[in-house]
């Protein structure tokens, strides 16, 4: 009987040992998670007047880390280098308003979506009564390099001149300077742009575009084989959605829910 009890105890002990990597998630014992964001995509990620990296994406990343009980190190990585940085293991996950595409899925795994948005044209409305590809023939349209909007324009607007900028700020600058006639980007991103005094002559043109390539959902990305982290992120995402943290961050940046 005594022997049986001892055997039972040792079994319990070995089960606890087996479970320990799962149970042990204290922030102290783990190195900080390295998170990449874009840094030039207001109001999602940008440097404020004090030079501090901030934005909706940054706050979401920090909230996720806190929910996962891990410390976090968020840094800005140029948009075009984001996929490589996760793929090569330099960062653990990306929170950069990234849409899920088949091409990106070859290198990355995507979480559940964390906000939704649409793509829309912005320019001087009086100049563009129609947005048909033929009507925009010869028109200079700008957008970010390696974005779903860039692929969409290449596919659907072959007669227009496509000006690919390194990031959204640069694309907006092209429009303001008059080097571009139209910009195609995310509605919420453009809302921020349109509310600036310098862009008062611009406006949304037409309704948001509807196309399968222009998914309206932004996802968090991890390296393709990092399934445990992806699951942890999904759980944390669901938790911050349910416990009000997400709502709090949302309200800080936008007057309405963008989930």
């Amino acid at each position: 009987m005594r022997q049986g009890l001892q055997a039972f105890r040792s079994t319990l002990f070995s089960i606890a040992l087996l479970l320990s990597p799962v149970l042990d998630a204290s922030p102290l014992s783990n190195p900080p998670l390295r998170v990449a964001t874009e840094g030039s995509y207001p109001p999602f990620s940008y440097f404020d007047t004090h030079g501090q990296l901030t934005g909706f994406d940054v706050d979401i990343a920090l909230a996720l880390c806190q929910e996962m009980q891990r410390s976090c190190d968020v840094k800005a990585v140029p948009w075009v280098d984001l996929i490589d940085s996760a793929n090569s293991g330099q960062v653990d996950f990306i929170v950069a308003s990234m849409a899920r595409t088949a091409e990106r899925e070859r290198y990355l795994a995507f979480s559940d979506y964390y906000y939704r948005s649409r793509s829309i044209f912005v320019g001087i409305p009086e100049r563009f009564p129609s947005l048909a590809p033929e009507a925009l023939s010869g028109i200079r349209i700008t957008t970010g390099r390696d974005t779903i909007q860039a692929s969409y324009l290449q596919k659907h607007y072959p007669y227009s001149t496509l000006l690919l900028a390194d990031d959204q700020e640069q694309a907006m600058e092209l429009l303001v300077q008059g080097d571009a006639d139209l910009i195609l980007s995310d509605t919420i991103n453009l809302l921020d742009f349109l509310q600036r005094p310098a862009s008062s002559r611009f406006d949304f043109i037409g309704p948001p575009l509807v196309a399968p390539e222009l998914q309206s959902e932004a996802h968090i990305a991890v390296a393709k084989d990092n399934t445990p982290l992806l699951q942890a992120i999904n759980t944390a995402l669901s938790n911050i959605r349910l416990n009000g943290t997400y709502e709090h961050i949302n309200r800080h940046y936008f007057p309405f829910s963008i989930y």
Binding site: R116, T187, I188, L191, Q195, S200, F256, I258
Partner: peptide, 19 residues
Amino acid sequence: PFIARKNRLQAQVLIHGFE
């Protein structure tokens, strides 16, 4: 007019956000 425009833009994005 500036505040009105801001409101109109936000309302527009809000309505665009409806799925």
